[in-house]
């Protein structure tokens, strides 16, 4: 249950504003791909095109192709809702549903597909997903408490559990640790290296060390200036990117000379 995505010449618009231009990249299955680059260069925007979340913003649209295992996600017959069921997403801010218990949060996506899930199956899914998100031991005694009663790091792992409960092909993470303390961040980084055995993971991060620690491949985005579209500057295996990038701007960014 993990698929590759090949992006070809993707242009991403907000109304008339071209936010990201001409991105082509291959996202390998069972690996972590990190997207890095200065703020505003379109990392989030690009990430959200991979599960068609971009178009929920009024006026937002995409040109080009994003092909997941042979199927163009933007083909006319493709239902964005079905895309999102296969490509899960974790946001920067932990966003468990405040009106749902921990268990119901985990099951939220599952229930969309399967309304009449049996009690036993539900309990299994909750345990499997929470274990998968390294959260089970912390919450197993209070599954009926609201998700918002957890700490920020726990909430984020709950969101990861909710995303993996539906067994997606791909998991997108938009700066999943930037609202968290260092310990929770480490917990989630550990989790990512486990999850990549089963999932294709794409993560946006502002943290170079994090990209170096968790990712297999790294893509560097940049913008030429305010109001200009963001572009993919270079993409390579993470060790190569961090030791000998081929573009000077990448080296400048990675070594902290700007951004």
């Amino acid at each position: 249950m993990s698929k590759r995505i090949d992006v070809e010449n993707l242009d991403v618009y907000y109304g008339d504003f071209l936010a990201v231009e001409g991105v082509s990249m291959a996202i390998e299955p069972r690996s972590v791909t990190a997207l890095i680059g200065p703020s505003g260069c379109g990392k989030s925007t690009f990430l959200r095109t991979l599960n068609r979340m971009h178009e929920v913003i009024p006026g937002a649209r995409v040109e080009g192709r994003a092909v997941m295992d042979g199927q163009d996600l933007y083909a006319p017959e493709v239902d964005p809702v079905q895309v999102r069921r296969q490509v899960g997403m974790v946001f920067q801010r932990p966003n468990p549903f405040p009106t749902m218990s921990i268990a119901d949060n985990v099951l939220a996506g599952v229930r969309l597909n399967n309304k009449r899930i049996s009690k036993g199956d539900a309990a299994d899914t909750v345990e499997r997903s929470l274990r998968g998100a390294n959260l089970w031991n912390e919450v197993k005694d209070r599954l009926d408490k609201p998700g918002s009663s957890l700490s920020g790091g726990q909430q984020q792992r709950l969101c990861i559990a909710r995303a993996i409960a539906v067994e997606p092909q791909v998991l997108l993470m938009d700066e999943p640790c930037s609202a968290l303390d260092p310990i929770s961040t480490l917990a989630i980084e550990d989790l990512m290296s486990e999850l990549k055995n089963d999932y294709t993971i794409v993560i946006v991060t502002h943290n170079m060390q994090q990209a170096a620690r968790v990712s297999d491949r790294t893509a560097f985005f940049n913008i030429a200036g305010t109001g200009q579209p963001g572009k993919l500057i270079e993409m390579a295996d993470t060790p190569t990117m961090f030791s000998s990038p081929s573009v000077p701007a990448t080296e400048d960014y990675i070594s902290g000379r700007f951004g």
Binding site: P38, S39, G40, S178, H206, A224, G259
Partner: peptide, 17 residues
């Protein structure tokens, strides 16, 4: 919503050299 919360300088969109 993601441009805040970074207290390191990486939150700063600075294009080019």
């Amino acid at each position: 919503m993601d441009e805040d919360m970074h207290d390191d300088s990486s939150a700063w969109a600075a294009p080019g050299p």
